[in-house]
């Protein structure tokens, strides 16, 4: 398993420099220019594409076949991509959250509860794209599966944009009432979708003949 993660790390180092660039750009833009949540969470959304792209590279180089000659189970091959996905999303979340926190502090609008609520909602939305798309990719291959991915990006981007148009990042109060429970519900839902997606990907990939 460690070998698979190391391989993906080398591939990310080679192919994913542009994502780092995008992360910096969007973080800077969200810091200086806009209160719209889309700018804050778009890097998270975009970085969900990393495991999807790594899978596409694996298919292209026929590593999907070669990995069958190595002492890995198909479940481990699938899990490798999910672990990469979680690690990347956490790293991006850390960067965007830090930037957003600093911004709120500088503006004098930092309230810890609001900050975490917004963070959780945005993260849940943006991190769901990859787990919703990955089972399709493991079942049908990345060519067909990628269409689902782009569709999901559209749906989530539109949702985040729509929500953030109504909710101002710095004036929102979601710490009470039904709204207060939303982050917890979203977290549970997000974890459930992740777990189901992981499980389905393993089932689909075991059945798939590469």
């Amino acid at each position: 398993m460690k070998g698979l993660l190391l391989k993906d790390f080398y591939m990310m180092k080679k192919y994913c420099k542009s994502y780092l660039f995008m992360l910096v750009i969007f973080t800077v833009v969200s810091f200086f220019a806009s209160d719209n949540l889309l700018f804050v969470f778009y890097p998270c959304l975009l970085c969900g594409m990393i495991p999807v792209n790594l899978l596409a590279y694996d298919e292209h180089s026929r590593f999907t076949v070669y990995s069958g000659t190595l002492p890995y189970t198909k479940a481990q091959v699938v899990s490798g991509k999910y672990i990469v996905c979680i690690l990347v999303q956490c790293a991006v979340l850390f960067v965007t959250a830090t930037a957003q926190g600093i911004k709120m502090a500088v503006n004098g609008s930092f309230r810890a509860q609001d900050f975490f609520v917004i963070l959780i909602i945005g993260f849940c939305f943006s991190s769901l794209v990859a787990p919703i798309s990955l089972p399709f990719m493991f079942k049908f291959g990345t060519e067909k599966g990628r269409m689902v991915y782009f569709f999901m990006i559209g749906v989530v981007a539109a949702s985040v944009y729509g929500l953030s148009t109504f909710l101002n990042v710095e004036q929102i109060d979601m710490g009470t009432g039904l709204a207060g429970a939303l982050p917890i519900l979203l977290c549970v839902l997000c974890a459930a979708i992740y777990a189901l997606s992981w499980y389905l990907s393993i089932v689909f990939y075991r059945k798939r003949e590469v």
């Binding site: 070998g3 080398y10 591939m11 590279y57 180089s61 070669y66 990995s67």
Partner: peptide
Amino acid sequence: VGVVMDEVGLPTCLTAKQVGKIMASTFK
């Protein structure tokens, strides 16, 4: 079991040195 397929499916961006490190973490 050591296997060589008709097409060696290693990611194209890897070097032999990196492949060695990956395999060191793959085979006991």
